[in-house]
Simulated scan of single mutants.
Amino acid sequence: MDCAGLLEDAFGRVHEAVHEAVEGLDEETLAAAPGPGANPIAWLVWHLTRIQDDHVADVAGREQLWTAQGWADRLDLPLPHTDTGYGHTPDRVAAVRAGARELLGYHDAVHTATLEYVRTLGPDDLDRVVDASWTPAVTLGVRLVSVVADDLQHAGQAAYARGLLERGTRT
Rank of each mutant, 00 (worst) to 15 (best):
A10S: 15
E27I: 14
A31I: 02
D2N: 12
F11S: 04
I41Q: 05
D2W: 11
H19T: 06
W43R: 11
H47M: 05
Q52N: 07
E23D: 08
G24Q: 13
P34V: 01
A17L: 14
A31S: 14
A21K: 02
C3L: 08
A4S: 14
P40M: 10
L44V: 03
F11H: 10
H15S: 12
D26Y: 00
L7W: 02
Q52L: 05
R13V: 01
A31G: 05
E16K: 13
L44F: 06
D2S: 07
T49Y: 07
D53R: 12
H47I: 03
W46T: 09
D54G: 09
T49M: 08
R13T: 02
L48R: 03
A4Q: 04
A21F: 03
C3Y: 13
T49F: 03
N39C: 11
Q52A: 14
E8V: 11
T29C: 04
E23Q: 08
A31H: 02
V45C: 04
L44S: 14
V18D: 04
D54N: 14
V56I: 15
P40K: 08
A17I: 09
P36F: 12
V56L: 12
A4W: 09
G5C: 03
G12C: 12
A17Q: 10
Q52K: 08
L30Y: 11
G37Y: 01
L25F: 11
I51N: 04
E8G: 06
H55G: 10
P36I: 09
G35Q: 04
N39R: 15
V56F: 02
T29Y: 03
G37V: 09
E28N: 08
D53K: 07
I41F: 01
H15N: 09
H55I: 10
A10V: 07
P34S: 01
G24A: 02
D9Q: 12
P36V: 14
E20N: 15
V56Y: 00
L6S: 06
A38F: 11
D54K: 15
I51K: 10
V14K: 04
V18G: 06
A42C: 03
G12S: 05
G24N: 10
L30H: 07
D26A: 10
E20Y: 02
E16V: 13
D53G: 01
E20W: 06
V56N: 01
C3M: 14
A17R: 13
I41C: 09
H15Y: 09
E23F: 03
A10F: 13
C3K: 06
E23K: 07
F11E: 12
